[in-house]
Design a protein around this nucleic acid. Structure first.
Lengths: 228, 228
DNA sequence: ATTGTAATTTTGTACTACAAATCAATATTG
DNA sequence: CAATATTGATTTGTAGTACAAAATTACAAT
């Protein structure tokens, strides 16, 4: 037997925590769908034998996540949550761990490589034209600014037609840049034989999915280099 | 001018919402880090000129996300949130929209293709051995069960050494299976020229990143077919 | 110097009260 | 009769009080 195990901190779980878990399980088990009406605060408090206060603190959490909505006198109804709402609220680089930030940094690279499939599946001539407008507006003299990088890459995500995917990436951008700027402070970023945005567009026009992934990998080489 | 715009619902934003936003902005602006101690509930209520009740409902949300922790008499301190905690709580297939579920389904495919880079970068002989044990335990007679699929693919995610990435995928699995099982009800899933887990392992042993991505794409072909 | 004890502070929970919103039912008016 | 106005009741949102539990601090005792 492991004596360290037996000294694990006792779960200091509050009534509010338990009510929250209880309610989420209740919603799932009963297969409640958006629009379904829910019992009132008083009824819940009575049924669970806790104060209305505790119930409201739990409901407040679910309201924040968009799982429920409530209006005066109308009672509460199930709602359709934004799947990324909870994520958005914790994206504060000062409180996330270094490991998590590194993980997020890598995830963005994985997404950029993996998206090629859907990019080629769904790209349209109009998309290509828009990409060309974007790179035309970006001076070829200097390195693209962060804003120009974001504009180009976000357009690529857009082209996959996957809104959640696009929004996910947009949320990760600030953390990604945070990690990269920390790195740049201490390291010289060197890129030879670089692939530029215009090269990526050319491959989108006349290359293959595999060509694109290889090119994207080269384009992202400075970032991949960090992950060692 | 667009008259529909002017009929947008008035923001029915509660005091609790405003206090929550206020606090998160406060934390970010002051670059609070995990462990930093925070003002007490009474002080916040007084400063913001709202009842302690409202403050507690807002704090309850932040506690759920793991942004803060509080213990009796000890006051509140900043904490290190689980970046996926908020996501986890809304992963209820009954309340997420069809579009979102489809997006999630596609995102998993993107991750599987995109992960190859880090898989090859970090795989070890021990990992390969473990993969071979997994496929050896899986009968080659029948199609892999969902559990067997999960076991194999989760091991692949593990091998990238990216814990957030692995956890993210584990969270998506139930939704992914939900979407796929809905599809299977109405459609015959046919797979010829299929790539099996053992083929993927062989490529991991002696192939290239590009070989692996192409193989994985074939392995996932039945799923890609859905996304049309 | 360590242990025990009491005072105090802060969060957790409960309860009451009331304003605002709105639903339901009834009354009023054209 | 139909449409509108009024009234009453109900439910959420906010405020405030009260007290238990926990833990910090200070002090007392051995």
């Amino acid at each position: 037997m492991n004596s360290k195990q037996s000294l694990t901190p006792l779960d200091n779980i509050s009534l509010t925590d338990r009510v929250e878990n209880n309610l989420r399980a209740y919603f799932l088990e009963n297969a409640f769908k958006p629009g379904d009406s829910l019992p009132g605060e008083n009824e819940i408090a009575e049924k669970l034998n806790v104060s209305r206060n505790v119930v409201r603190e739990a409901l407040s959490r679910l309201r924040m996540l968009g799982i429920i909505e409530s209006r005066t006198r109308r009672g509460m109804i199930m709602a359709r949550p934004d799947i990324l709402g909870g994520l958005e609220r914790v994206l504060n680089p000062f409180i996330l761990g270094k490991d998590t930030l590194k993980d997020i940094f890598e995830m963005r690279l994985i997404l950029e490589i993996g998206m090629a499939e859907f990019l080629f599946l769904r790209k349209t001539d109009k998309d290509i034209e828009e990409l060309e407008v974007i790179i035309k507006n970006q001076s070829s003299i200097h390195e693209p600014t962060i804003e120009e990088e974001i504009e180009f890459h976000t357009k690529l995500y857009d082209m996959t037609g996957n809104e959640t995917f696009t929004r996910f990436q947009v949320l990760l951008i600030p953390l990604f840049n945070h990690v990269f700027s920390l790195y740049k402070k201490n390291n010289k970023v060197h890129q030879s034989n670089h692939i530029y945005h215009k090269d990526l567009v050319n491959i989108l026009k006349s290359g293959t999915v595999e060509d694109f992934r290889l090119a994207m990998k080269k384009h992202l080489a400075p970032y991949f280099k960090i992950t060692d």
